[in-house]
Write a protein that binds this DNA or RNA. Structure first.
Lengths: 202, 202, 202, 202
DNA sequence: ACATAAGCGAGACGGTACGTCGGGTCTTATC
DNA sequence: GATAAGACCCGACGTACCGTCTCGCTTATGT
């Protein structure tokens, strides 16, 4: 499903021999992204993507089992950049930056709409929910956990801190506001950090 | 859309004149509910509801513009009972009871699945999101606000408390966990209350 | 089905007590007629008639089993006037006048469209065909036969004449031309008479 | 609409590429034919055809605008065989054979019911009438005219004969009898020929 | 060097559900 | 007791996409 991550070595001229066509792959991802932005999740259809990307339906079905898989691919590419977890520096400050980035992503970045749409679709389709966990939620949670754990290990945070509970207490309200279309001012995020981590900062 | 709750005075024998047929209305709501529980949101179709409720499609279209309107009706009936806001007694304790009820509702009550599905669908359809706000989110938030405000007025809570921020900090994590299929132990909820309201209890 | 032909004795003021409402009856017939003229047979629906006649559907169903019955009623009223069979005078000349009237009726009279539509519908529905025979074709044929028979009896026509064959040879081409939208010049009709009756005129 | 009659050169194995599927086409035509014979024109529905032919509705709509177009196709295939115009030999005798074939077709051949149904439907729908002329009536009339004209050219028939009038005088009664469900004995047809062409035979 | 085999565009196919129209039955209130 | 009004169940309409399929074309190897 995920390609060999555009292996930088190969020159992207024209098309590979009888390997996957990178141009088609990108056209599909962009078409899906655009359609989601323009018409919402329900306005995205395989036929619509194929038409806009000037690609045969079969080409889509060959590489992606469903439209959510396509969106998961676009999310992977976009979110990786926007939602990187700080791997060094003071942990509380890093958390603050991460949460602000998250708030920005889900309220202002078009790619954030993809994330919200996928959370939405996960409510409608259990198999898709499983995939969503596997491809996004679980890996991202792993990285988030590592961040706080680094704080505990470094003595910045109390070892009493329940890492998962804290992460949900921090991310939950941000995502919830985004899902309900509410605004997320900076001090709302700062308040969450103060309430959730405050007691545990050493 | 919601009828005046079958004005108790009239005997429910047979059918109303050339007015709405209460039996058909209930059959539709139950069929929708059942289908959602059994096959998920994407498994709910107007045709499916009509077939199971032994009702003509036209009868559904006459009274509900779309399947989400049907689900909003079922939510109104079910959630009203499960998610009543305490209107008297100590506010913090009332809040605790409400949040525990909310956690139970969204994780264990079949009707809670309806709520999650509607949050999900709101990500896919802006018009539906508007309706969802109007029919559920906003009224419920009004009631939640009244609860905390009562605490402030009664001197139980500091007047510094940002009511909306607190409510999202409390409900957000609970809903988020439900949306991601996580469990919600009682102490998770208690922890949220402690972190969010603790500083403001007088 | 056919009312007692607007028994002239009763004053047509308002509506009769709990007898059939003559105003409704006429409104239905006219609405049906108008709709047929404006939108063709397929554009005539019970709902459409009811709406245009400002009449309840039930009122229509109470008095007419189907829309063709309504059209049969309008035909009876209109055709009786236009297609009267000459009951006295020279028979060949009478036949000529009758056939010219028939040609005029099916090509120019709006009520003629009703006749053509009913012939058409008879091809689609055997039960309707039976009714059409009973209510129009057979009685009219009876009258036509009487005309030629009078000629034979009076010695104007040879007794060798096969009356039914002659009538179909005369009416068939006229109706067929109307059904296929062709024009019917006077000499076409005169030619039919010459060919069909010529040999038998004594 | 009518395909180039399955160009005999290509082997009919499997299905054509992304071209029309001949098996589906035939299944539709036969299903339509059968349904018309069994249940009459009003009993023919696109859904019914699709179900009986084991074909998707969309496949029907892709190739035929309406059910009458399907019936026109079945008529073309069947009538061509049954109603061929004699292209050589004595013209009067040829006409006789043609008219007997026509009488047989419209009274006994199941495909004749299709012709009657189409004449009927033409009364209900002007656009359909136009198409019916274009696809059947006009071409067939052209061929019929050629037959009589050949007789005139060959000196078998007087040049005074009004070809179109004669054809309607011949075919009209036959079709009319079929439309009204009457029987058509051989001598009825022979009588028409005698009356209509007799005077003009040289 | 060229046959091969994979990816590709195109699009027909059997299906499911959509939202609408009209059919014919019913119930009620009004006159 | 007939009528206007209109809700009801039902069947068909014509459309949009689904996911599968077959086709003819293109092109970089791997003999």
């Amino acid at each position: 499903m995920t390609p060999p991550a555009s292996d930088g070595s190969r020159a992207p001229k024209g098309r590979a021999p009888h390997r996957r066509d990178e141009r088609a792959r990108l056209a599909v991802l962009h078409a899906a992204d655009d359609l989601l932005a323009e018409r919402g999740f329900n306005g995205v259809s395989i036929e619509g993507i194929a038409a806009r990307a000037r690609v045969a339906k079969q080409t889509i079905y060959r590489w992606w089992p469903s439209k959510v898989d396509i969106l998961l691919d676009t999310l992977s590419e976009d979110a990786a950049r926007q939602l990187a977890i700080p791997e060094a520096g003071p942990v509380v400050e890093g958390t603050r930056r991460y949460l602000h980035a998250l708030a920005r992503f889900v309220t202002r970045d078009p790619a954030g709409k993809v994330l919200l749409a996928l959370i939405g679709e996960a409510q409608h389709d259990p198999e898709m929910a499983r995939l969503f966990h596997e491809r996004w939620l679980d890996p991202q949670r792993m990285r988030e956990r590592a961040l706080l754990q680094r704080g505990i290990d470094a003595g910045e945070l109390s070892s009493e801190l329940d890492v998962d509970a804290a992460l949900d207490a921090l991310c939950g309200p941000i995502v919830y506001r985004a899902l309900t279309g509410a605004r997320i001012p900076r001090r709302f995020v700062d308040g969450l950090i103060a309430d959730t981590l405050g007691r545990h900062v050493l």
